[in-house]
């Protein structure tokens, strides 16, 4: 038998929920442990091996000092996988990207926050290193993780759905939330979670990222139809995907010149500045 591939798990800025899902998956699919050797997994074991071929990385990159560690992982691993929305997209961490970083630091850490805590706009790890695959979701789907690892070990290219969430939602015969007057980003979101949120009556917030053909203009119209303000729509779109939208620059489907989208917005500009994120009119 050839030696088992060695895999390692790493975390950056994240809640570790995806790693917990992995722990969960390993408990229900014990067979996986026969096929791989886990050499590093802070969430589940204390040993640390530096000799790995496959690296799963959870969390987004939110500090310059994270970059060296990411590059070191990339230099060692033959395959790098972004695990979950933070690593894949920037995730909820990237919500802060909508404001100048100095103001965010002050707001979150207080007056001396800027001196004491290092921080920069949250980025998906693919903004720093080359990433081979992503397992999307906040958190990742346990079964999708298992299927992914199976395919990877079989030498087949793991493939994710590239169509909108509505497909899975219709197969589940859910009544459409948008038709019932409840906002749901399903039409612009990548499928793969079996439409778990709409199936339980909650609108999708696009934690798996946007579908390749996302029709933002008409998604906005649908949300406007629910009476959502431009600011609220921007807030919906940027829940997990602020980094992606910012990268679209002037093409970002966000209302120009709108406020910062925060419900807790105050008049005090130093505490909560206006958004830098409204697509610039001209650059």
């Amino acid at each position: 038998m050839p030696p088992k591939p060695k895999i390692a798990f790493f975390d950056f800025t994240s809640c570790e929920g995806c790693q917990l899902t992995v722990v969960d998956a390993l408990q229900t699919h014990l067979g996986l442990l026969d096929l791989v050797e886990i050499v590093q997994f802070r969430e589940a074991m204390s040993e640390r091996g530096e000799d790995y071929q496959i690296a799963f990385i959870e969390g987004s990159c939110t500090r310059e000092s994270d970059e060296a560690r990411l590059r070191a992982i990339r230099a060692q691993a033959a395959v790098v996988i972004a695990l979950g929305a933070c690593a894949h997209l920037g995730g909820v961490n990237s919500m802060k990207n909508r404001w100048p970083i100095e103001n965010v630091q002050t707001y979150v850490y207080g007056k001396h926050g800027r001196e004491r805590y290092e921080s920069y706009p949250a980025r998906p790890i693919s903004a720093v290193i080359e990433v081979d695959y992503a397992i999307p979701g906040c958190p990742i789907d346990r079964l999708e993780f298992i299927r992914f690892v199976q395919k990877l070990l079989q030498g087949r290219k793991p493939k994710l759905p590239d169509y909108p969430l509505c497909v899975e939602c219709k197969l589940a015969e859910n009544a459409c939330l948008n038709k019932l007057g409840q906002p749901c980003l399903g039409p612009v979101t990548l499928a793969g979670c079996d439409a778990v949120c709409p199936s339980y009556g909650d609108g999708c917030e696009a934690c798996r990222g946007f579908a390749p053909e996302a029709n933002f203009a008409h998604m906005r119209e649908i949300l406007q139809g629910h009476g959502l303000s431009e600011v609220e729509i921007d807030a919906q779109f940027t829940m997990f995907n602020a980094y992606q939208l910012k990268a679209m620059g002037a093409n970002a489907p966000l209302s120009t010149g709108a406020g910062n989208g925060s419900r807790r917005r105050t008049a005090d500009a130093e505490k909560l500045p206006s958004s830098t994120f409204a697509a610039p009119k001209e650059t």
Binding site: G31, P164, C166, C176
Partner: peptide, 29 residues
Amino acid sequence: ERCLACGSCTNVCPTCFCFDVQDEMDLNM
């Protein structure tokens, strides 16, 4: 231009019958 490419119209249609075929290997390979 308007279409969301969401596939809802075909999934709910009584005359649509297209399907995709996929192979999956179990853990034991």
